[in-house]
Amino acid sequence: MSVRLDHGIVERAAAGCALRLPRGPHRGRLGEVRASSVGSSLELHDFRQYQPGDDLRQIDWNAVARTGELYLRVRQDEVSPRVEVLVDGSASLAISPEKAARVREVAAWVCALARRGGLDPVVIATGSTVRKAGGPSIRAMLEALEFDGREPFDAALRRAPPLRPCGLRVVVSDFLFESPPEPFAERLARGASGLSLVQVLDAEDLDPSGGAGARLTDSESGEVLERILTPHVVDQYLERLKAHVSLWQGAARRVHASWSQASAEFQLDALARKELHELVEVA
């Protein structure tokens, strides 16, 4: 199912905001955030003795005057952290046009926030094929994204190119697959300086309508289950959904990741102000 991505909505939601970056130092391209590595920023990191080949501009002449030794200022590097947006392209993300649109919008919104902060976002989307896009091609890739994956997100992500370390990762998915949350969360957090998990759920996922019999078909595996959707059955579903989300929240806490849940029935700007505010800081 292909729905045109409305960039006007995305830009309005991202106006005046920037992506909240992790507090710890990052490694990455030259930018505005202090990195853990040494570099050329104005912030002093350390002193060390001059060695041949060092940049003479970094020699601290005051120290030379005091000690008679050639000392070099070692400055902290300034990096522009990488932002990797991982989008779940499995079929469950497209059980309704609203859910698919919201996934695209959230991914585009994160990219817009990153750009506003001077970061360079990269989008990796799974599905029947895994695609990676950066820079201006992100827009076209998100617009053309087909939610046609038939395998769980964690399995599909194995086919993706290796994630780069030290980057900020934002994962957009419904997280409705049976794989154990903790190993997958650890895998996503491994090497990343920050991880945000954004769960996008349809209104029918959050509050399914009952009262009649239905032939329930799994959007990905095609499995069928016939059930009479009595209030009791719906209540049981909601209990299991709650327990499932709790598992993911616990897994996110363990890997120091943030967890956000967005309902597809709300517009992106509303979500940006409320459910997704943890991703945002006012510029």
Binding site: D174, E178, A214, L216, D218, S219, G222, L225, E226
Partner: peptide, 27 residues
């Protein structure tokens, strides 16, 4: 009548199964 129940696609069928139904076979 049982075969003709209205179809509904769901995101996660495993959340609809009771424990004894989790092992139900494919179509």
């Amino acid at each position: 009548l049982r075969r003709r129940q209205p179809p509904r696609t769901v995101s996660a069928l495993f959340l609809w199964r009771t424990p004894d139904q989790r092992a139900e076979a494919g179509p």
